[in-house]
Design a protein around this nucleic acid. Structure first.
Length: 307
DNA sequence: AAGGCTAGCAACCGCACCAGA
DNA sequence: CTCTGGTGCGGTTGCTAGCCT
C-alpha cells in the first residue's frame, strides 16, 4: 500500500549539494523556469537528484534575494507574534519576511527563539544557570505547538506588565518568569497575577487553574521544581484533576489547550477594542503586540481556515 | 591536547492537498 | 467519482564546527 516514491531513492544522490550541482540547477531554472515539473527536472539537466530535493534547494538557497541569518529584533517580534497567532505555519510566517524561507524561519525558531522564549529544546541545555520554565505533558514529553502558543500569549501578557523600552517584548522574560513562577510564589499566584494585573475583573482565574490541572482542594500542584532547579509546569491530565470545580474538560490535553487559546484570543479581542478602538473582528486581534502586519496576517489566516 | 557534547543548519521524509485524466 | 502524479509543507534527522571539561 501507499503511493509510489517520487524517485528511486537508492540511486539518487543525497546529502549536501556541490557547487557544480548548484550551478547546473541555477542556470537551468534561470533560463527555463521549473516548467511546473520538479520531478522531471533533474533528468532533463542530468542531475542525479530527487526532484523534491532540487525544488527544496532552489527555494531555500538558489532563489534570488534569499537572506540567511542576521534576524533583526523586528523580525523576531514578527515571528513570535505570528507563531502565537497561527502556530507553526512557517510558510505563512516566512511570507511576511522578505527574503526569508520557511526552512530558515523554522530553524531559527527551533534553535534560537524557542529556547529564548520557552526554554527546553530538542536536546537538554547542559549549562543552564537559572531555573527554566519547562512544559511537560502528562506523559513527561516536551509539549509543543498549541501549548507553546498559549505560553507565548501568557508571556506577552506578563512582559507587557513590565514594559522595557528599547527591548524586544521578551527582553525581561526570565525575571518575570522567576518572580511569577517560582515555587515560592505558588501556582495560584501565577494566574492571580495575570488576573489582577492584566485583566482586573475580567479573567476567571479558577477556570484557568482548573484547566491547567490545579485542584480546588487537596489536589497535587502541577508545578514542581526539579533537583536541577528547573521549574516544570504540568499540564493536567484528567486523572490528576479532581472534580472540585464546575469547570470540566471532556477532551484531551490539546483540547484543553485550544480552549485556553480561544479564551486568550477573546481577551486579545477585548483589549484591542479598548486600546485602539477599532473593529477587531470576531476572530480576535493581536494588535496589542505592536508588531505591524501581524493582525492582518492572523485575520487572513483565520478567514482562510474558517476558524 | 583530546574527547565529549551542544547548537546551528542543511537536507530528507512523509503526509496532505490539489489538479488533471 | 476515482486514481494518479506533482507540489507544498511541517516535522525530523544527520552532519559539523565550536565550546567545555
Amino acid at each position: 500500500m501507499g503511493r509510489a516514491p517520487c524517485c528511486d531513492k537508492a540511486s539518487v544522490k543525497k546529502g549536501p549539494w556541490a557547487a557544480e550541482e548548484d550551478a547546473v540547477l541555477r542556470a537551468y531554472v534561470a533560463e527555463h523556469g521549473t516548467a511546473g515539473n520538479w520531478i522531471a527536472l533533474p533528468r532533463k539537466i542530468g542531475l542525479n537528484r530527487c526532484g523534491k530535493s532540487c525544488r527544496l534547494r532552489w527555494l531555500n538557497y538558489l532563489r534570488p534575494n534569499i537572506r540567511h541569518g542576521g534576524f533583526t529584533d523586528e523580525e523576531d517580534r514578527l515571528i513570535c507574534s505570528l507563531y502565537a497567532s497561527i502556530g507553526s505555519r512557517w510558510s505563512t510566517i516566512a511570507a511576511q519576511l522578505p527574503g526569508r524561507t520557511d526552512n530558515d524561519v523554522k530553524n531559527y525558531w527551533n534553535t534560537k527563539l524557542k529556547r529564548r522564549l520557552l526554554g527546553g529544546g530538542r536536546r537538554p541545555i547542559r549549562y543552564a544557570q537559572q531555573p527554566r520554565l519547562l512544559l511537560m505533558s502528562p506523559t513527561g514529553g516536551a509539549a509543543s505547538t498549541a501549548l507553546e502558543r498559549m505560553q507565548l500569549s501568557v508571556q506577552r501578557r506578563l512582559v507587557g506588565l513590565q514594559d522595557t523600552p528599547g527591548l524586544p517584548f521578551y527582553g525581561n522574560l526570565w525575571p518575570a518568569q522567576q518572580s511569577l513562577l517560582s515555587p515560592a510564589a505558588g501556582y495560584s499566584g501565577f494566574w492571580s497575577h495575570i488576573q489582577t494585573s492584566t485583566y482586573p475583573g475580567r479573567l476567571n482565574v479558577q477556570d484557568h487553574q482548573h484547566a491547567w490541572g490545579s485542584s480546588g482542594g487537596g489536589g497535587t500542584t502541577p508545578m514542581s521544581t526539579s533537583p536541577t532547579g528547573e521549574t516544570a509546569v504540568g499540564v493536567g491530565s484528567s486523572s490528576s484533576t479532581p472534580a472540585a470545580s464546575s469547570v470540566t474538560f471532556d477532551g484531551d490535553m490539546e483540547d484543553e489547550i485550544e480552549m485556553l487559546l480561544q479564551q486568550i484570543g477573546c481577551l486579545e479581542e477585548e483589549d484591542s477594542r479598548l486600546l485602539i478602538g477599532s473593529e477587531a473582528g470576531s476572530a480576535g486581534s493581536w494588535s496589542s503586540c505592536s508588531t505591524p502586519g501581524v493582525d492582518s496576517v492572523f485575520q487572513g489566516y483565520v478567514q482562510g481556515h474558517g476558524q
